[in-house]
Every structure is written in C-alpha cells, then in structure tokens.
Nucleic acid binder design. Sequence first.
DNA 1: TTGCTTGTTGGTCGCACACTCAATAGCATC
DNA 2: GATGCTATTGAGTGTGCGACCAACAAGCAA
Lengths: 214, 214
Amino acid sequence: MPSSIQNKRIRKSPASRRAEIVAAASVVALAEGLERITLRRIADELSVRPGLISHYFPAVEDLVAEAYGSAADAEIEELLPAGRAGATPTEHLARFLRRAAGEAYDDVSRLWLNARHLSRYRPALRERVAEQENAWRDRLVALIRDGVAIGEFRTEDPLVSAIQIMVVLDGLGMLVNGISPAEDPPEIKRLPLTTAERVLGLPVGALSAVEVTD
Amino acid sequence: MPSSIQNKRIRKSPASRRAEIVAAASVVALAEGLERITLRRIADELSVRPGLISHYFPAVEDLVAEAYGSAADAEIEELLPAGRAGATPTEHLARFLRRAAGEAYDDVSRLWLNARHLSRYRPALRERVAEQENAWRDRLVALIRDGVAIGEFRTEDPLVSAIQIMVVLDGLGMLVNGISPAEDPPEIKRLPLTTAERVLGLPVGALSAVEVTD
DNA sequence: TTGCTTGTTGGTCGCACACTCAATAGCATC
DNA sequence: GATGCTATTGAGTGTGCGACCAACAAGCAA
C-alpha cells in the first residue's frame, strides 16, 4: 500500500483551514506569480482536494486577492512597521530604501508588478492593490512627518515627497523581469536614495552613509 | 444559404498574410492585453481558421512577442522619431513627455506593464522587451545629446538623465490599471516634466511652457 | 485549358482550468 | 461509546487553450 500519499482526512476549523489556504497561496504568489494560484495547485500544496479550496473561496479571484493582500501586508510590516521605536526616521528610511532596492526584494517587486497588471482583469485584486497602495503611502508619509517634526527632514508636502519616492521605486521595480544591461550606470541603483535625499532636503549622501543594522 | 460567414478561401502571399496576422494581434494586444492573443481570437479577427495562425506562428509565444514589438515600434516612431526636423530638442522632449503622460497614452502604458510582467514567463517576449527598452533609451539619449550640443540642455551624463526620466515615466505607468485617488496632488502628473527639467538643467517650468503643436 | 504548387481548411487530441454537488467521514459533544 | 454536525471528498461538467495533420482548392505557370 502506498504510504506517501495522504488519504486520511484531516478535519480543521474553518478559520485555520482558511488561513492555511491563504498562506499557501501567498507563498505560490511570491515564488511563481499570481496566475499560478489555481485550485489544483493550492490543493496539491496542502494535500487536499481542489473542491475544498472552492468551498472556502467560491471564486478563485477572491483567493488571489487575499493571497496578494496577505503577502503585501507581511512585507509592509517588515519594511515600514507602524510602531517604530529605537531608531530615527532617517535610519528607518535608509533601511527601507536599502532593502527595497536589494535583490532579496525582487520577489516582492515581481509581485507588485504582477498584481498591478492582473488588476486590469480582476476587480477584486484591483481593490486590494488600491488598499495596499494607500497603506504604503500612509506609512511612508507618517515616517516623513515624524522626520520633519524632529527636524531631520525638510519638505513642504510630505505626501508629494512620499509619492515621488514611491514612483522611483515602482519605476525601478518595472525592470525586475527584464534582462539587466551589465553596463547600467551605478547611479541608477542609488536613485531611490538620492531621490529621497533630494525631496527631503537632506545633504547628498546622507542616507547612503547611514549604517543599517539588520 | 448563410451569406455573412466567410467560407470562400482567400489565398494571400505569405508576407502579406503574416503582416496581417501581426497587425491584428497588435490591435488586440493594445486594446485587450497580450494574454488575449490566442489562435482562435486572431483567426476570428481575420475570418480564417485557427490552424492558419499556427501555420505562420507554430508557437503562439512568437506571435505575442511580434505583436508587442510591432505596437512598440509604431509608438516609438510616433513619440521619439529618429529623424527629427523642424523643431528643437526642447520642443521634441516637451511633446514626448506631454503625450506620454496623457490619457491617450494609457493603452501603451498598459501594454508596457503587460509585457514587463509577461516577460517573466515568456523568454521570447523578454528578449523583445529588452530590445525595445534599448531602442527607447537610445532615442531619448540621442535627443538629449542634441540638446546638449546646441546648449539647450545641460547634463554630465545623458544616459543617466535619460534613465532617470524613463524611470519616472515607468513608475507612473505602473498605476495605469489602478483606481486613481481623486485627491492625488497635481504635482504628480507633472513629475515627468519637472524631472526632465531638473536632470537637464532647465529652469523650472521651462518644459511646461513650451507650446506643443500636435 | 490543364496541371501543380502551396496556402488554407476542418477536424481532432490532450491538457488545464473553474465550478458544482451529493456522498462521506472526522471529531466534538454528550 | 454513540450521535450529529459539517468539513472534506470524489466524481463530473463545460470551457478554452495550443498543437498537429491529412485533405482540399486557389491561382499561377505552362
């Protein structure tokens, strides 16, 4: 008798099963893309039958939106935590920009690109992207305001400054699936940092110089 | 007898049939997205049988790449023509940025977003996107060099300046499928213009002031 | 007009997808 | 240990996709 295949039913509470499904979908989304979230794929991942996924998410589109939202939520807590303690706004900002430009962040960049494109066809996802967009914006604005309040940053409009920084991050994120030209000038990779320094009235190199303890 | 359906064969030269197919696919790509390019869809569009599309493009992926390339080629000729005559670099640049930020350009923005994401799964498309990326970059660099040569622009590194402008355009293009917040500050829409003015050493508002004859 | 090249058809195959629902069985409760 | 609720299964439906290929016929050349 085959022992490796799971044929014994495991009955879980709706809440935990649902969470499990979203978590699995989230992993697939980050690693392989949102279009790889299918009933069969997620069911296989959890060793259950496809029908079960349908039971919790009658429309796959809702699972896709949820998976994206879950991954993005986790990322925002990691990169722009709400309760910032133990470090100055400048340090937090430097850490954020440093990470968001790093290669370890590529999966997240891919996910954003993926979600923004797929939004075209999936209203539920479009809604979720808009929410995340606002959440990230708000967090960054709050960070900037704090910095302005204690005199570290100088800007007339924190919202515009935040958007300018995010536009640059998005613009660079667009290239994540491309063939990176080896001759790309090094200034490009530092664009997020230099942009932030400029719009926040920091001296050139101020953010690059910050030591980021990870 | 049904008269509306096309059942008489029309035999065309391989070259013109192929061009016709690419043109149809290109239209579908711009209007509905690259993933809507299917054998059946394009065949319907041309009132031929799906097999015929397969005959010219044994792998659909190649048609997708071709359709994207064709659309992007048309657009670059429209926005950044190679032989620029009758207008100054400043005027050309202003016209380019004005259009690229306008709503009429949304379909093109969507196509780029689409292509950049789909590149993740389709090598042939990824290749094409890289080519286009370089073409656009080169055209913009050439325009900037011309401007520098006649003293209209001032920059140490035309390539870096060009990339900075394109990053901002891409970053804004990322938002094309999103729900645009009504309260978006007006500065955002002018970001391409102000960015160009800054990186090219132009006085603030210089590009906005240029009259663009369409 | 006849013949022949080859552009085009029509049918088929296998696969992957979302979604439905009656039947089954895990497990908390008593 | 028996019972009942419901989480889970298993089987099936219909759609759309890319790919394949033998047979057909359009239109040029002889």
